[in-house]
Amino acid sequence: KFNKELSVAGREIVTLPNLNDPQKKAFIFSLWDDPSQSANLLAEAKKLNDAQAPK
C-alpha cells in the first residue's frame, strides 16, 4: 500500500510547476522518511504550489 501511495505522491510532487527543485527534493525526502504521511505531504506540497503560483 505505501509503495503505491509513495510513487503516486512522488510523481505528483515532481510535476508541481510552482515548486523549485529544493522544495520538491525536501518533500520527496520526507516521503521516503515516512511513507505513511504521503497523503498529508502531497496536500502540503499542493498548498505550497498554489501559494507560489504567479499572480
Rank of each mutant, 00 (worst) to 15 (best):
D50P: 01
D34I: 03
D21R: 07
N20G: 05
P17A: 09
Q52Y: 04
P22T: 15
Q52R: 04
E12I: 14
I28R: 00
K1Q: 12
E5R: 09
Q23G: 02
Q52K: 04
V8H: 11
K25I: 13
T15M: 14
F29H: 07
N20Y: 08
L6Y: 05
K24H: 01
F29Q: 09
D21N: 08
N49M: 02
P22M: 15
Q23L: 03
K25Y: 14
K1H: 11
P35H: 02
D50L: 09
K55I: 11
K24F: 04
N18C: 08
N49W: 03
A26K: 11
R11Y: 13
S7A: 13
E5K: 09
I13R: 00
T15E: 14
A9K: 05
F2S: 09
D50C: 09
A26I: 08
Q52S: 04
E44N: 05
L31K: 00
D33A: 14
E44Y: 10
Q23P: 01
N18R: 01
E12N: 05
Q37P: 02
S30D: 05
S38E: 13
P17G: 05
L6C: 15
S7E: 13
I28Y: 03
L41E: 00
L31E: 02
L48A: 03
N20E: 05
I28N: 01
L41Y: 04
S36C: 07
S7F: 15
W32R: 01
Q23I: 05
S7Q: 13
W32Q: 07
N3I: 13
E5D: 10
E5Q: 10
L16Q: 03
F29P: 01
V14I: 14
N49K: 01
L31P: 00
E12V: 13
T15F: 10
G10T: 15
N49T: 03
L19F: 00
A39N: 08
K47F: 06
L42M: 05
N18S: 03
F29K: 08
D50R: 08
N3G: 13
P22R: 14
Q23H: 00
E44W: 11
W32A: 06
K46R: 13
E44S: 07
K46I: 10
W32P: 02
R11E: 07
P54S: 08
D34L: 02
S30F: 09
D34E: 06
L42E: 03
A53H: 05
S30Q: 14
W32I: 09
V14S: 12
K46L: 08
S7L: 15
P22D: 15
L48Q: 04
K25M: 14
G10P: 02
V8G: 08
P54V: 09
P54N: 09
N40K: 13
E44Q: 12
K55T: 10
S7G: 09
P35G: 03
D50E: 13
P35Y: 04
S36A: 08
S36N: 06
Q37E: 09
A9L: 12
P17L: 06
S38D: 04
